[in-house]
């Protein structure tokens, strides 16, 4: 395998969790929900998927995979639902509650891999490996690239279609852009729609966690997410919250992170350079958007 192919494969493997969590963030932001908690939802999803993956009996075979992914979606959804409930019941800002829930998820997973879910030898802070039936099939043989990438593409296209053409997608967009008009002119139950979008967003981030466990790590570790849920915000914003755009920006950020590791190994350039480039890209895009909107100030 040539070095270029290896790089492309690594990029797509890195892009997969970024793309799916970016999609999760884009859905929430479209609904006017500032879900900063994709990281926590990712970890919740990864944990649930690992739990199913480890404890599934080998007799169910490949059924373990969809079960693990569904468990990831449910766990991510529940993690978001906590913040959604706090928001609608006590008007707790989701920006704050989701960040808090990120910490709970991170340290909760740490506890689990050192306690109840630790591998039987009790040496490493991780779970045992998931059963073979829960492994994501490999997309290109002899590489690490798995079907999770295709799942990410499908989810993006499906979400794009649903946001554009379904009544529910339209309600989400309307509620996010102007909740007053959504309620008065559209008779839309805005809290219900936005809470629903919040939970779906969490479920998708949870799927990303499940995909990571079933496709890459095959076990739950401490720090399974190197901050995917935070990079996801940049991925979503850079894509203009467009579900199809998330595919491109997810791959771009995947390439940057892959390159960061390679550069550090081969040329001694610190990996943090990639973060600097990511930040410059985001600032550049925001700057261009601002500049454009200033140029098109309309007459009143």
């Amino acid at each position: 395998m040539s070095q270029t192919t290896a790089f492309i494969v690594d990029t797509l493997v890195h892009a997969t969790p970024l793309m799916i969590t970016g999609l999760a963030v884009a859905i929430a932001f479209r609904a006017g929900i500032w879900n900063i908690g994709a990281d926590g939802q990712f970890i919740a999803g990864a944990t649930a998927a690992a739990w199913i993956g480890v404890s599934a009996p080998a007799t169910i075979g490949w059924l373990a995979l969809p079960l693990a992914l569904v468990a990831g979606a449910i766990a991510g959804g529940i993690w978001a639902a906590i913040a959604a409930w706090l928001r609608s019941r006590f008007a707790v800002l989701e920006v704050i509650s989701t960040i808090m829930l990120n910490f709970i998820a991170t340290y909760g997973a740490s506890y689990l891999v050192r306690g109840p879910l630790q591998e039987p030898t009790h040496v490493f802070p991780q779970t045992s490996s998931i059963v073979a039936g829960a492994h994501m099939p490999i997309l290109i043989s002899d590489t690490r690239l798995h079907w999770g990438f295709i799942l990410g593409l499908l989810l993006s296209v499906l979400t794009w279609y649903a946001m554009k053409y379904s009544a529910t997608g339209f309600r989400i967009r309307a509620s996010g852009m102007n909740p007053f008009a959504a309620r008065n002119a559209g008779l839309i139950n805005v809290p219900r729609v936005t809470s629903g979008a919040f939970i779906v967003s969490g479920a998708i981030a949870g799927i990303a966690g499940g995909v990571e466990v079933c496709g890459v790590t095959f076990a739950l570790y401490e720090n399974i997410s190197p901050g995917y849920g935070y990079t996801a915000i940049a991925v979503a914003l850079l894509a203009g919250l467009n579900p199809l755009g998330v595919i491109g920006t997810g791959i771009l950020f995947g390439a940057l992170e892959t390159a960061a590791g390679t550069m550090q190994r081969n040329a001694g350039i610190p990996a943090t350079t990639a973060s600097v480039i990511e930040a410059v890209v985001i600032l550049g895009v925001i700057g261009i958007a601002q500049f454009r909107s200033r140029c098109s100030v309309s007459a009143t």
């Binding site: 053409y165 379904s166 009544a167 997608g169 339209f170 309600r171 309307a174 008009a181 959504a182 002119a185 559209g186 008779l187 839309i188 139950n189």
Partner: peptide, 12 residues
């Protein structure tokens, strides 16, 4: 399309 969007089912 906003008019009646709250009760609409299916696709737009």
């Amino acid at each position: 399309a906003l008019a009646g969007a709250g009760a609409r089912r299916g696709m737009m």
